[in-house]
Design a protein around this nucleic acid. Structure first.
Lengths: 208, 208
DNA sequence: GCCATTTTGTACCAATTCGCAAATAATTAT
DNA sequence: ATAATTATTTGCGAATTGGTACAAAATGGC
């Protein structure tokens, strides 16, 4: 049962509020988002925000973790399904493009790629969080591509780690291009080009 | 001769000051950089800054243009030299990596890719400037790759516009990865992988 | 009913933000 | 020299910033 904790009940849903904060940062980035903005978006007053999530930077780091965990779920879903590598990658890119174009006030790209780098140069914690997420993307793709090599879908000569990092690179670029206003068609075409280049039967990128 | 303009002479060098402002934005991004920071970096007091470059956003836009024009010079240099496409691309990526890792206080990635997207979602002017610069990178690479196709270095089946956008995508990713702290080795290896994938003799990415 | 506990709401703080007005300084033109 | 022109300096001011102190409110335990 667990019952209620003890004192006055929270008037907000922590998971929801965290996501609302994330969306606010997503629009304006870390520095340009004020505590007033966050307070308005979450319908929590400042002291509640502070008590629940710590200071602004701590809250931002928590939204990065939250996005990473949502992304992980989605990655596992897209990359985990049965099907050819090319179809899997198409679904992967397709889902990302839809997400990146789905902002309530226009396209906004990837939350992490488009907001964290700015703050990463001067803040080691944010830099580390960004690096961890990039690594996770690389690793998820590498796992799926290794699989394709093992099953003979890709040549044994193919280098899964390298191909994964290249595939991730196109994702990063799509993230930025979406926020810059590129059309869905242009993004989808870029993704398709990446799929064809990566999934070709005779890979040129021999291990060095 | 042109002589001196008329009144009191400027005590600053506009080109230098613009670059100093750019470097300041490069470290902290648009929103986190204050006019005091800019004033200190340029050794200009606030009203002089304002008179010379307009308000903060206008100044930022001018630094984006400045970076784009420097980049254009550098691109023309790297991509314009004689040599195989693969060597040309190696030089292109190599130069970018050195620049991205060369920050006075640690690696800072690409100025445009790592600072403009954050502000681009809410500011149409910045978004437009970003889009223009992305387009310019694509176009420069496409010109060089078209050349390679015309000279038979790449198959006639190759799609220069697509390959250019893929090559640019890897550049964008390197820009972000550098700021996230990836090692020079990792970045160079990624670049080499991109070169090999793009410059293979039998391209799979047929035009659609 | 009364106390302990937790959250909320209001108000406030010191510091910083961007932008500008007005006076001062340095130069050229006449 | 004097006027005209341009840049710099000082200092302001209204607004916003991130963060907190303190009292009021809402719950559970007894």
């Amino acid at each position: 049962m667990a019952g209620r904790p003890r004192g006055r009940p929270k008037s907000y849903n922590p998971d929801l509020a965290l996501w609302q904060a994330l969306e606010t940062f997503w629009s304006s980035g870390f520095a340009a988002t004020s505590l007033d903005d966050l307070s308005a978006a979450t319908a929590m007053n400042r002291p509640s925000l502070y008590a629940a999530f710590g200071d602004k930077k701590t809250l931002y780091l928590k939204t990065l973790q939250r996005f990473a965990s949502e992304m992980e779920k989605s990655l596992a879903g897209d990359l985990g399904k049965a099907g050819s590598l090319s179809d899997t990658l198409r679904a992967f890119y397709g889902g990302a493009i839809e997400l990146y174009l789905s902002g309530p006030e226009g396209p906004r790209g990837c939350y992490v790629i488009c907001t964290a780098p700015t703050a990463a140069a001067t803040d080691a914690d944010i830099r580390q969080a960004l690096a961890a997420i990039l690594k996770e993307i690389d690793a998820s793709l590498e796992a799926r591509i290794s699989c394709a090599v093992a099953e003979g879908e890709l040549s044994q000569e193919a280098d899964p780690a390298m191909l994964a990092r290249l595939a991730a690179s196109v994702l990063h670029s799509i993230a930025v291009r979406a926020r810059a206003g590129e059309s869905r068609d242009a993004l989808q075409s870029l993704a398709e080009g990446a799929v064809q280049l990566i999934c070709q039967p005779h890979p040129p990128a021999s291990k060095r």
